[in-house]
């Protein structure tokens, strides 16, 4: 809690810089239209209220957000709640898929030296490939295989970004028990399955949650990337795309802030889950 004051200070500094930037960047357009010389107050007033500003002022974005989140019905195509929901479902689908794949690969890699030697280098290389290059392809391939809509391709892209942090974190977590603990299991004559369920898996839980927090943020990035370049019409990424095509900066900025809020909520939910689970399991907080 002692961080509240510094955070608020930094946030207000960002807000002030934002306003100054808006005045500076929008003033060119104000001066272009001006018929006579303007006073400073008139310039500032005009930069705050343009319809298509180069950089919208924070209160304009807030008004647009209020309009599209609260005022519109959630079923409306112009409601950000509607688009956020589309993005959220794909994110969660991709997150679950990516987590499952990451978990399975981690277990395989921890238990099989062959898998570790053959899979791990490729998992690392897979992350150096910019996924966006593959995103349009995935959509083409799935469309030709008869998968309708964009929910599945988006989820696959999200899973692609999400599986790696889970894999790395879980490999670390599953190998975290030290030799002493593994020896203890041996003296109990525990089977490999018992060793896994009673020692390795519980030990890996803190690592798992750390990876899940990174993974869910990555899944959201993946979904939005999947919505950006592909002519999607629904979802927060599509709102950004449409806003760009219609030259409507307010639409882009409100969609961006909505995406940021969504990321914040998702990470907080995982963090909350972490606190609850860790407390139940008796990890010292």
């Amino acid at each position: 809690m002692r961080n509240i004051l510094p955070i608020l200070t930094v946030l207000s500094a960002i807000l002030i810089i934002w306003y100054l930037g808006a005045i500076w960047m929008n003033s060119a357009w104000t001066l272009d239209r001006a018929e006579g010389p303007l006073t400073l107050t008139e310039i500032v007033q005009d930069t705050m209220t343009q319809d298509r500003p180069r950089l919208p002022a924070p209160h304009q974005v807030a008004a647009e957000l209020y309009d599209t989140v609260i005022d519109k019905k959630v079923t409306s195509k112009r409601s950000l709640v509607y688009h956020g929901w589309i993005t959220l479902t794909s994110t969660l689908a991709g997150f679950i898929l990516g987590t499952v794949v990451g978990l399975l690969m981690a277990v395989g890699i921890v238990y099989s030296r062959t898998l570790k030697m053959s899979l791990m280098p490729w998992a690392i290389i897979s992350q150096t490939i910019p996924i966006v290059a593959i995103a349009p392809m995935i959509i083409v391939v799935l469309a030709s295989m008869g998968v309708e809509g964009r929910a599945v391709p988006k989820a696959i892209i999200a899973a692609y970004l999400c599986f790696f942090p889970v894999l790395v974190g879980m490999v670390k977590g599953l190998t975290a028990p030290d030799a002493m603990q593994i020896d203890l299991m041996k003296t109990y004559n525990a089977t490999p399955a018992q060793e896994f369920w009673k020692l390795r898996l519980p030990t890996s839980v803190p690592y798992l949650f750390t990876s899940l927090k990174i993974g869910i943020a990555a899944a959201l990035v993946g979904t939005i990337v999947g919505e950006l370049p592909t002519g999607a019409v629904r979802g927060l990424g599509a709102r950004i795309l449409v806003g760009d095509q219609f030259g409507n900066p307010l639409m882009i900025w409100s969609a961006l802030l909505a995406a940021a809020a969504l990321a914040g909520i998702l990470v907080s939910v995982v963090a909350l889950l972490q606190t609850v689970v860790m407390k139940r399991m008796g990890f010292a907080q």
Partner: peptide, 21 residues
């Protein structure tokens, strides 16, 4: 103390969306 939590948060955001801007 002020920037680190915000930086951590921003690092998790889909910043890629600012590309059109």
């Amino acid at each position: 103390r002020g920037l680190l939590p915000i930086g951590n948060f921003v690092a998790a955001l889909p910043i890629i969306g600012i590309a059109p801007i």
